[in-house]
Design a protein around this nucleic acid. Structure first.
Length: 296
DNA sequence: GAAATTTGACCCGG
DNA sequence: CCGGGTCAAATTTC
């Protein structure tokens, strides 16, 4: 479930969807404000000093997201339409057999992997969605400053999952990703189960540390060289060290688990107890991001 | 050495 | 021919 999700190719009810997203974001912002207040009222050990900055960053992200959402339905829907408009017509759903032939005679592989029309378009501050994707292409798009990244489900080979997606940074707000999904996951494999599940009992906040405006990045977290298209790449050890640093000292609980193989996927989950409320920090995905969960 | 990413080449529809 | 989507060899990373 994406934090920010707007629009649909069918244009069924963009206004309602946008409204719901706005309310969710406003709710998230309020919770972030509460978290910040809690953090400010607590006497923190030096190692936790970055948490206040983190909370402030959450608030700023929420404010910016709200601004974008409320910018106007017209702009919003036109952006979604533009994102969907580049798709080929749905009539090409039949598999273009062996669309590519190399010099050494075409491969018979592939088959039936042609994407249908976009199933949905989402705008999110992180390109992470709980699934494991494998990038298979990148393309400069005409009349667009940002390249479009092409991903397919990493279990395509194992499970024959045909889900694909395109990711492109928003023209309006580079910290937002416009993600267009094609096909459904037939693999049913998700990452970080139990953390990605949103049962509605807690608020979720997604912080993208890869934001271009890194001037106010929490000092506890790391810097990294830019990655093509702005999606940053970090090794597992780097991310895990950042989590350890963030959770160092004090009443740490849970620690780190779920480290994936670096390069394939970096997945770590850290948990801490703080000021009466439990704070979880999860870091996962090839685009470095963290997810904060405040329980109670 | 294995697995993922990069990136130029290739395919196809308009 | 152009532009978007995909492939796959080369490269990168661990």
């Amino acid at each position: 479930m994406a934090l920010i999700a707007t629009g649909a190719t069918s244009a069924a009810s963009p206004a309602a969807a946008s409204m719901a997203a706005s309310e969710l974001m406003a709710q998230g912002r309020n919770s972030a404000a509460v978290l910040e207040t809690i953090l400010q009222g607590a006497s923190l050990p030096p190692a936790h000093g970055g948490l206040q900055l983190l909370a402030a960053e959450i608030l700023r992200c929420c404010d910016r997201a709200l601004t974008v959402m409320r910018a106007g339905e017209a702009a919003e829907s036109s952006a979604a339409a533009a994102a969907a408009g580049v798709k080929r017509k749905p009539a090409t759903t039949t598999a273009p057999a062996n669309r590519k032939r190399r010099a050494n005679g075409g491969s018979s592989g592939g088959g039936a992997s042609s994407p249908a029309a976009a199933t949905r378009v989402e705008r999110s501050r992180t390109s992470e969605d709980g699934y494991l994707w494998r990038k298979y292409g990148q393309k400069e798009i005409k009349n667009s400053k940002r390249p479009r990244l092409y991903f397919r489900c990493s279990y395509k080979d194992d499970d024959g999952c045909t889900a694909t997606r395109h990711v492109q940074q928003s023209e309006d707000d580079p910290s937002l990703y416009v993600i267009t999904y094609f096909g459904d996951h037939t693999c049913s494999r998700k990452l970080a189960a139990g953390v990605d599940e949103d049962d509605g009992t807690f608020q979720k906040f997604v912080i993208n540390f890869g934001s271009a405006s890194a001037s106010s990045s929490p000092p506890l977290l790391y810097e990294s060289s830019s990655y093509s298209s702005g999606i940053r790449r970090e090794t597992t050890s780097t991310i895990v060290e950042a989590v350890k640093l963030l959770l160092a000292g004090g009443s740490r609980r849970g620690g780190i688990r779920g480290e994936g193989r670096a390069g394939r996927i970096a997945s770590g989950v850290g948990g801490g107890e703080f000021a009466g409320g439990r704070l979880f920090l999860c870091v996962s995905g090839t685009g470095a991001f963290a997810r904060l969960l405040e329980l109670g």
